[in-house]
Design a protein around this nucleic acid. Structure first.
Length: 802
DNA sequence: GCAAGGTC
């Protein structure tokens, strides 16, 4: 009864996907391969046609696509952003302008006289928003009431059965809340970005015309500035770094081996920062003539194969391994994709779908001149199951499709293709196995160690040798319970070394962890801060990103006037606000009004304080720019005032005071993941336990298996174990929130996400006890429980009592 | 000329 169709009429059904490749896939699946490629108005967006039935009626299907958003958000033409008062932009209306008029026409033409519209746009918020853009173009063609003739397909993968299921379970209308959340983000980003960019560009250009030599525009954006902030934070750490000397003992013993008559033992305390202590210990054991081997442990260590490849990982490898900018990498990947060599290159997923046909890919590659032998090996012996990974519900991991040899591809295309294929083969190979032997020695009261590691089975490393985590170290030829003659016990000196500049690969990790940008936009943000002259790329040092004087000056100015504008929270605040719309908790209008009001105040404050920006730009950038010509213009920086002194409303400093977020805070986060213990090699799970002292505000964790235990993140607001796993060690990522004033994180960020065991920031903050002396290297050793956790001379976790 | 998000 819903369908106003005469008997015997053939229904016209239109389906729209987000991009041509998906239209083709869907057409193929739903038509059972019978769809014909028809002509549309645009060359790039084909229309696929077939006959079938729709809810029991005869129907002709027309499947086509858009190419991303159909509209972009702009100010109306009458608004000249370069000559108006930038502040007024916060209240200005915004309009949508078609990204391509031809594309709108295309959708309107295919959509002429349709009975039903089925929306197959990507199942994320952007896709939901594009649904409404499509509707805008066909709404007059639809029968009344149009809502009854519009359907949304919800699919989580492009696999045959998932597409068919989505077709059977189509729902009425896309989600308006989600779409509105995207619109809110567009408006907020547009107004903030252009207001700040125009304002500071014009003011700085007026005062310092030479700034145009560096960049025509001094842009600000809620993604590009946190991106710059990460680079600056590292540069600041390098600047402040003071090398610290340390001392350690090195003992050598005589061995029976003719090849290695001298064996060098490692001190279990590793190093001490107090020279006298080391000297005292040396004196104490200097009279010893022998080292007694009290224990030899031998075990097999395995190295996990890689996960399915997602975009971020590809970008990181291409940057650090091939020296390619992420922008260039994406261009290459897109080219490979459009030529049919690889699957869609923009994906967050590292998990293959349950019905992924591995053998089909292996078959396609079994005759390849370079890796054909390996692919056929996997076909003959049967490949391994891939690691679990994360299914983000967008696209499958990046995998090879068509087989190509080196002669068919350009140099860079080949490199990327080769990497993608080898990584794919590795993901379904056996893990690599090493034999590890550790010998512990006692000299007086001191412990020393000698260890060796040898690969016993290469597994996936045969096809991806660059992933090898360690070189072989000869196994010690030592016997337990034997005394070895000491040759020497020397004190050696070392110095802590400064970290290097942030590499592009590190930056991508930072952005991903702090949710700055998306897999598709990360390359653009990085390119932006390079093009604007805020950072320079050092290609000789693994594409490390060195902030320029201009970048540093801008960073300092923002940090001192309103650090929130350059911290990752500027983005998370906007995202969180828009989340609330998407979840239907707050209205579109209330969020947009509130966020823009907040940022308008921030903008007003920034413009009022512009004298300070001017001062910093002058001293840190302009004066240094002309350094060669006019030496010593040494303009000392003025002491920076505190917020209170300059009258900035205190409550603006922290979003915690913002009413909107009291509502949002009630949203719960899924916690289904396990925090694997990396001490007992992921056998156990770290469980949160109650601290003994009720007033202790730290998070206490203990491994269910080896009982390794520690506490961390005193006074944090929130501790979440995420579903995403660490690439390195397979443990789950951890997200920790702090009030801004107590934040231990770089740049007082209020949040950090990373692996508890591998993340550099956590490693600095958390005081990990060494796994108890007698058990650390031995997963099976039960002694862990009754040993104090402060082996190796490093004192830990006694400070928690208050 | 200006943001960030899609995409070819």
């Amino acid at each position: 009864t819903l369908y106003k169709t005469g008997k015997g009429k053939t229904l016209k059904i239109m389906m729209v996907a987000e991009k041509p490749s998906i239209a083709k896939t869907i057409a193929g699946i739903l038509s059972g391969g019978t769809a014909r490629e028809g002509k549309g108005i645009i060359k790039s967006c084909s229309v696929w046609e077939y006959e079938g039935d729709f809810k029991g009626y005869k129907a002709k299907f027309h499947i086509t696509s858009v190419a991303g958003h159909m509209y972009s958000r702009d100010f109306p033409e009458k608004v000249d952003t370069w000559s108006c008062d930038p502040k007024s932009l916060f209240e200005e209306e915004t309009i949508q302008t078609p990204t391509s008029k031809a594309l709108c026409k295309h959708i309107q033409t295919v959509g002429k006289d349709i009975d039903f519209l089925l929306l197959w746009l990507d199942c994320d918020r952007e896709g939901e928003n594009i649904c409404f853009e499509v509707i805008e173009n066909v709404k007059t063609s639809l029968p009344f009431p149009k809502e009854n003739h519009i359907f949304r397909a919800k699919f989580s993968s492009l696999a045959n059965k998932d597409i068919k299921a989505a077709y059977e379970e189509i729902i009425h209308m896309p989600n308006e809340y989600e779409s509105k959340s995207v619109e809110a983000r567009q408006i907020i980003d547009l107004k903030i970005g252009i207001a700040f960019s125009v304002f500071q560009t014009l003011r700085l250009r007026e005062k310092y015309p030479m700034i145009e030599n560096v960049s025509r525009v001094i842009s600000y954006g809620p993604c590009q500035f946190p991106t710059l902030g990460f680079c600056i934070e590292r540069a600041e750490r390098i600047k402040k770094f003071v090398p610290e000397p340390y001392w350690y003992l090195n003992a050598t013993i005589k061995s029976d081996s003719a090849v290695t008559p001298n064996l060098s033992l490692k001190w279990k305390r590793k190093k001490l920062f107090d020279q006298t202590s080391v000297e005292i210990i040396q004196t104490e054991i200097s009279s010893c003539t022998t080292a007694w081997c009290n224990r030899i442990s031998e075990y097999t260590e395995s190295q996990n194969k890689p996960l399915g490849l997602n975009t971020v990982k590809l970008l990181k490898v291409a940057s650090s391994g091939f020296g390619l900018s992420s922008h260039v990498t994406m261009r290459i990947a897109e080219h490979l994709y459009l030529s049919g060599f690889i699957t869609y290159p923009r994906t967050e997923s590292t998990a293959y779908s349950s019905n992924f046909n591995f053998n089909e890919v292996l078959e396609a590659h079994k005759s390849h001149p370079d890796w054909g032998y390996y692919a056929s090996g996997l076909l003959e012996e049967g490949h391994e199951k891939p690691r679990a990974g994360v299914d983000a519900g967008d696209h499958p991991p990046i995998t090879p499709v068509r087989c190509a040899d080196q002669s068919q591809l350009q140099d860079l295309d080949w490199k990327i293709y080769q990497f993608i294929t080898q990584n794919f083969l590795a993901t379904i190979s056996k893990p690599a196995k090493y034999k590890v032997v550790k010998a512990e020695f006692i000299i007086g009261p001191e412990f020393f160690e000698l260890s060796g590691k040898q690969m016993v089975s290469s597994g996936f490393l045969e096809i991806t040798p660059w992933l090898s985590s360690s070189q072989d170290v000869e196994l010690p030829d030592i016997q337990q319970g034997v005394e070895y003659e000491i040759n020497s016990i020397e004190i050696k000196e070392g110095k802590t070394t400064s970290p290097g500049y942030l590499t592009e690969s590190d930056l991508i990790s930072c952005m991903e962890a702090n949710e700055i940008g998306t897999d598709a936009s990360i390359p653009t943000h990085i390119k932006n801060i390079i093009d604007r002259g805020y950072v320079k790329v050092n290609t000789k040092k693994g594409r490390s990103l060195v902030p320029t004087n201009l970048g540093m000056a801008l960073g300092r100015a923002y940090c001192e006037i309103d650090s929130e504008l350059i911290l990752p929270k500027v983005r998370s605040y906007i995202e969180k606000s828009c989340d609330a719309i998407a979840k239907g908790k707050v209205t579109f209008k209330s969020v947009v009004d509130h966020v823009l009001k907040t940022f308008k105040q921030k903008f007003e404050f920034y413009s009022e304080q512009f004298a300070l920006v001017d001062k910093i730009i002058k001293s840190d950038f302009v004066d240094k720019y002309g350094e060669e010509r006019k030496k010593d213009k040494g303009n000392k920086n003025q002491a920076v005032k505190d917020y209170k002194e300059i009258g900035f409303p205190q409550e603006m400093r922290s979003y915690e005071h913002c009413k909107l977020f009291e509502e949002v805070k009630t949203i719960t986060v899924e916690k289904t993941a396990h925090l694997h213990c990396n001490i007992c090699k992921n056998k156990g799970t770290m469980k949160k336990i109650k601290p003994k002292n009720k007033r202790d505000t730290s998070i206490h964790l203990r491994c269910s298996q080896c009982k390794y235990e520690f506490s961390c993140f005193k006074d944090c607001n929130k501790f979440e174990i995420l579903k995403n796993g660490c690439e390195n060690c397979n443990s789950s990522l951890v997200r920790v929130n702090y009030p801004v004033k107590d934040s231990p994180f770089p740049m007082s960020a209020n949040q950090h996400t990373g692996c508890l065991f591998c993340d550099e920031v956590y490693k600095e903050i958390v005081e990990y006890p060494e796994a108890s002396e007698n058990s650390s290297s031995q997963p099976e050793n039960k002694k862990a429980e009754d040993k104090p956790a402060d082996a190796g001379g490093i004192i830990i976790s006694k400070k928690k009592k208050r």
